[in-house]
């Protein structure tokens, strides 16, 4: 009984006309991989642009202790991203990279819950798929919330610096910012924004998959491969963040 049901399924659903799956992967999974490859090129180009523009600006030469924001040189990232929600209330002056570290851990954990959802799907456990998809969505939303806070803080700014013609600058916009050369903030908005948009669409897609799992679409289909494909996208978002974290915040 079970066997005949599988055969019918294959005849009806197999998109690979010849009846074989090259590379032992389904059509959808393979195409997801090639899409991710192209997306990887896009992100590589953005991060390499960051490298190019950074290396075409003078680096800060003095000691780190005396560092001040200036339009003349590229800022030290840990001096820019040193805020944490509520830290002034706790009497902490600066918490460099702590917030972005928290965001990194949130994404890693949401990647693990995603992989557990895929594992649950492989053994047809609808309840577990629902549970882990929900945790993944929650992780994604938390990350987006953190990013919104970070953007708001970056745009409002902390203290002031002066530009070449003697105007005071506070906060960051696309054309000028208090932290360093105009391109510094422009690249920050573009790259973390593009990544954030990927997280946002990932959360939406995760939600659709969660919904389809709850109404039993995958159970009827006989497999949970959609969870795996969307999982690939979600892990890719985590992967990109690993690189953004290094090249934007650490280096």
């Amino acid at each position: 009984m079970a066997n005949s049901a599988v055969i019918v399924e294959e005849n009806k659903k197999n998109i690979w006309g010849g009846g074989v799956s090259p590379m032992k992967a389904s059509y959808g999974k393979l195409m997801m991989w090639f899409f991710l490859l192209s997306d990887a090129f896009t992100f590589s180009a953005l991060l390499i642009t960051y490298g190019l523009i950074r290396f075409s600006h003078p680096a800060y030469a003095g000691s780190v202790a005396d560092f001040k924001f200036s339009q003349e040189y590229w800022p030290i990232p840990e001096k820019v991203f040193e805020a944490f929600p509520g830290m002034h209330a706790l009497g902490i002056e600066s918490a460099p990279l702590v917030f972005v570290g928290l965001m990194t851990f949130i994404l890693i954990i949401s990647s693990v819950t995603m992989v557990l959802a895929v594992e649950a799907g492989e053994r047809m456990d609808r309840k577990a798929v629902e549970k882990w998809m929900l945790w993944t969505i929650l992780g994604g939303l938390t990350f987006l919330g953190c990013q919104a806070w970070e953007w708001a803080h970056f745009i409002h700014g902390s203290d002031m610096s002066m530009n070449a013609v003697g105007n005071f600058l506070q906060g960051a916009g696309l054309s000028a910012n208090q932290y360093g050369p105009p391109n510094f903030a422009a690249l920050f908005f573009f790259i973390t924004g593009f990544h954030g948009f990927h997280v946002f669409s990932g959360v939406l897609i995760n939600f659709i998959i969660f919904y389809q799992a709850t109404v039993g679409i995958f159970e009827k289909r006989g497999h949970y491969e959609m969870v795996e494909k969307v999982g690939l996208y979600w892990h890719f978002v985590d992967l990109v963040w690993v690189f953004v974290f290094t090249f934007f915040y650490l280096v």
Binding site: S44, A45, I48, T49, G51, L52, I53, R54, F55, S56, H57, P58
Partner: peptide
């Protein structure tokens, strides 16, 4: 791409 573009960045500087 990384190597050519980083090199270019230095040249622009």
């Amino acid at each position: 791409f990384i190597f050519i573009m980083i090199y270019q960045g230095g040249a622009i500087l």
